[in-house]
């Protein structure tokens, strides 16, 4: 009896400990969201979304230039990374997987290993890589949104490729057979059957990939730089993004320190809201697909 009681107490204690773990994981989340929201709301006004920091030294100003920069850089990175990532995933799933050629199989293994390695590259290393490319090709000192976008490509490709591969592999083989049996060439089958069928999953993959890079700071700090002014040209001159804006507001506080802090928190709030929105959208896309099935 005593042993049974001991065991029961151990089991009870264990259950309570696990519930505490669950709670413990929620505390930082609630704290992060609460702090960011409460401090970010102070400057969440019209000016924040309509003004840059040009000529501002104390209170006032906004993050229009950073929001624009984030959108431009993220868009450019997505535009470059997604074709590479989805193309690679397509090749692995549709061509390499069905091949008996030892060369293609070895190449596929190499590509998968490379994707794994890329997934582990620290983001600052991606930034340094682009810096090195610039130093060798254009000369040091060059900064541009495009260089930042290229650094983000390194981070985005493995993320999109991996989940894109999963999504493509889930397209039923029955649909492949149905299309091939109709006398459809393989490339048309891929474009007209595989891709449309996988589309919701690929869109969700894309959104998650964007949410992964939209908050990146370190690589952009290195190669896109910081500016107080608007810049619409990805290829010319410094372009600030929201995360870099947060960092620089916090880092280079002027006389009215509170104004800089407020702007940093508001930018953090906008950024957080954007990331959560992207995640929500990604889930919604996949859920809607599952409902129509």
């Amino acid at each position: 009896m005593r042993i049974a009681r001991k065991r029961r107490i151990a089991d009870r204690g264990f259950t309570i400990a696990l519930a505490c773990c669950g709670l413990l994981a929620l505390i930082p989340l609630i704290s992060v969201v609460w702090t960011t929201a409460s401090r970010g709301l102070r400057r969440l006004d019209w000016d924040f979304f309509t003004q840059s920091m040009r000529g501002i030294t104390g209170a006032g100003g906004g993050a229009l230039h950073a929001i624009t920069g984030t959108l431009l850089i993220t868009f450019a990175a997505t535009l470059i990374a997604v074709p590479i990532a989805i193309g690679t995933a397509l090749w692995l799933v549709e061509y390499a997987a069905g091949s008996t050629s030892p060369v293609i199989r070895a190449l596929a293994r190499t590509v998968r290993a490379v994707i794994d390695v890329m997934a582990g590259i620290p983001s600052i290393v991606a930034g340094l890589f682009m810096y090195a490319v610039i130093a060798v090709t254009v000369g040091p000192g060059y900064r541009s949104g495009l260089a930042g976008a290229m650094a983000l490509v390194i981070i985005m490709v493995p993320v999109v490729e991996r989940s894109g591969e999963e999504v493509l592999a889930r397209v039923p083989s029955e649909l492949h057979e149905a299309a091939l049996a109709l006398g459809v060439p393989k490339w048309r089958m891929i474009l007209k059957v595989v891709l449309p069928t996988a589309l919701p999953g690929l869109v969700s993959t894309l959104l998650l990939g964007v949410s992964r890079i939209i908050g990146e700071t370190a690589p952009l700090l290195l190669v896109a730089g910081f500016t107080d002014s608007m810049n619409y040209d990805l290829t010319d001159g410094r372009m600030v993004s929201l995360p870099v804006y947060v960092y620089s507001q916090w880092q280079n506080k002027g006389v009215d320190a509170a104004a800089y802090d407020d702007r940093a928190w508001t930018a953090a709030l906008v950024l957080l809201a954007g990331v959560v929105l992207l995640h929500g959208l990604a889930r919604l896309v996949v859920r809607r697909r599952n409902q129509t099935r």
């Binding site: 039923p172 029955e174 649909l175 057979e177 149905a178 299309a179 091939l180 049996a181 109709l182 006398g183 459809v184 059957v193 069928t197 099935r293």
Partner: peptide
């Protein structure tokens, strides 16, 4: 394959 049609075990219309 375009000349010889085929129907499979499990119905597989394009979703």
């Amino acid at each position: 394959r375009a000349r010889v049609g085929m129907v499979f075990q499990r119905p597989n219309p394009f979703p």
